[in-house]
Amino acid sequence: MENAQAVAPKSANSKQNSARRHRFWKQFFTYLYMVILAIIVMYPVLITFITAFKDANVQAFVLDFGGKWTLVNFKNLFTQTLYGSWYLNTMIISVSCMVIQVIVVTLAGYVYSRYRFAGKKFSLMFFIIIQMVPTMAALTAYYVLANMLNALDHYWFLTAIYIGGGIPQNTWLMKGYFDNVPYDLDESAKLDGAGNFKIFWSIVLPLVKPMIAVQALWAFMSPVQDYLMAKFLLTSESHYTVAVGLQTFINNAQNQQVVLFSAGAILVAFPIAALFFYLQRFFVSGLLAGGSKG
């Protein structure tokens, strides 16, 4: 009896010890993983950030906090290169794409969520099938068509492709979001004598504002992010977008201007990352809702 009593607390104690040790290692490896991953993520970002403030005779593209810091690269970017026009071009294309695509997608998404009409099922199938066709599938045709229409190097053609490419999927997401707005709201408004337009504009629309913000971000981002189409359809250097233009700083292996590239990279990445973080909470829920809804 005595023996057993002596053993019991000891074994409990060692169990507790092993649990504590187990917890320690679990926490240790968890934090180790997170810290290493954070370093891997931050390393290239910091290199680019710091290089933007180095003077032009930088020897290597590395993380080096030493040396003189300067803003001269940003000045050179706008005085000696076409970066200013590239930025403006990108804004023109992105903003037009955003405005038009958001309007078109919101209207179509609303209709598919709220109306029953002849051919609805058939046309929804059309949307799903079109959604599967990658815009790239028409790459060669875009080039030929642009040649034929004299649209090579013009923004309207490029912008139209961006808009058209984003419509199928975003309409689908928008429809999913509209579906989440209770139908009773429409019904009661209709009983109060509100017309179609009024129901849409002052009752349903205010409730989907977060999704519209997300749609706007995406529609704005896709032209900014795109390299392929812009490189394909814009031929003169002064008409380039930022993505195509920035690449000209580094694609010549003999004469890489990494400091100019880094400065230009910061100026485009910073506002977009800021917008991204601001709208993040909206689109994560939106994507998950859209994803589970198909």
Binding site: L37, A38, V41, M42, P44, V45, I47, T48, F61, M221, V224, Q225, Y227, A243, L246, Q247, I250, Q256, V258, F261, S262, A265, V268, A269, I272, A273, F276, F277, Q280
Partner: peptide, 20 residues
């Protein structure tokens, strides 16, 4: 931090990596 690679436009990151 973990969201940064998504928040930064991909073409910027890829070009940076091409230098790195």
């Amino acid at each position: 931090i973990f969201l940064l690679p998504w928040a930064i436009p991909a073409f910027v990151s890829i070009m940076s990596f091409s230098n790195i």
